[in-house]
């Protein structure tokens, strides 16, 4: 992956998409293998260092829905603030920039429990963006959203990556949208995984074996899945 790229991790339920993402984000300990960040193993970085390199948006709900949008996004600046968490002018600028990119300025003083799922997801992404890390990891950012909001979130992610030159990696079940919007896709299967640009993967017929072929087949002409009746 290169800087400024958006990549999706796709695969069937239970194949380990979230596990992979959470392990990459150092949210949970790794099962096996090596992860390196800037050529140094992940576990050799202190959590303070990682906090300014990797930000995450997880599927688990936030503990307190009583936070206002502004308070929540401000928490993204924690790795940079002093011992008691005072926001500097630079922090405030980063926060308003993040809100501007996600178009949520008007939600600023709303409480999280007042937001719709789509709005809350945008707020969570703004928080990750305010953390100002090179890598942003998102675990199923489009679940519970309708088609329009799914596309909206993914387009936002793409424009963020291209504009800010950050690398964005997320897991998703929206393979068809991912094919159209992502720069790279990682197909995770139980025995092997393939990584490449959507076009390469379609050419290599990598999507065909994702689901049992007697139920769902992949149409490489349109880049979509068909249900076998």
């Amino acid at each position: 992956m290169f800087k400024g790229e958006v990549a999706a991790i796709v695969g069937i339920n239970g194949v380990g998409k979230s596990t992979l993402l959470r392990t990459l984000g150092n949210v949970q300990p790794k099962l096996s293998g090596n992860i390196t960040l800037n050529n140094i193993p992940l576990e050799h970085h202190s959590i303070q260092e990682l906090a300014s390199e990797i930000s995450v948006v997880l599927t688990e709900p936030i503990a307190s829905k009583n936070l206002t949008v502004l308070e929540l996004i401000s928490l993204g600046r924690q790795p940079y603030t002093n011992w008691i968490g005072t926001l500097t002018q630079e922090d405030k600028e980063k926060i308003s920039l993040a809100m501007e990119m996600l178009q949520i300025e008007e939600l600023k003083s709303k409480k999280c429990y007042e937001l719709s799922d789509g709005q809350l997801q945008r707020v969570m992404i703004a928080r990750a963006l305010a953390q100002d890390t090179q890598l942003i990891l998102l675990d199923e950012p489009t679940t519970h959203l309708d088609l329009y909001h799914k596309v909206q979130i993914l387009k936002l992610l793409k424009s963020i990556a291209h504009k800010t030159n950050k690398t964005i990696l997320f897991t998703t079940h929206e393979i068809e949208i991912a094919i159209q919007l992502c720069d790279k896709i990682l197909i995770l299967e139980s025995n092997r995984s393939t990584f490449g640009s959507p076009c390469e993967l379609i050419e290599k017929k990598s999507f065909e074996n994702l689901f049992p072929s007697n139920t769902i087949t992949f149409d490489s002409q349109t880049g979509s899945f068909r249900v076998n009746k």
């Binding site: 150092n26 949210v27 906090a51 995450v56 503990a63 928490l75 968490g85 953390q131």
Partner: peptide, 17 residues
């Protein structure tokens, strides 16, 4: 500072350093 981060849950708090 940690108490504020905990409002997001432990995983998020960890990711915030």
């Amino acid at each position: 500072k940690s108490l504020n981060a905990l409002l997001l849950g432990e995983s998020y708090a960890k990711s915030l350093g």
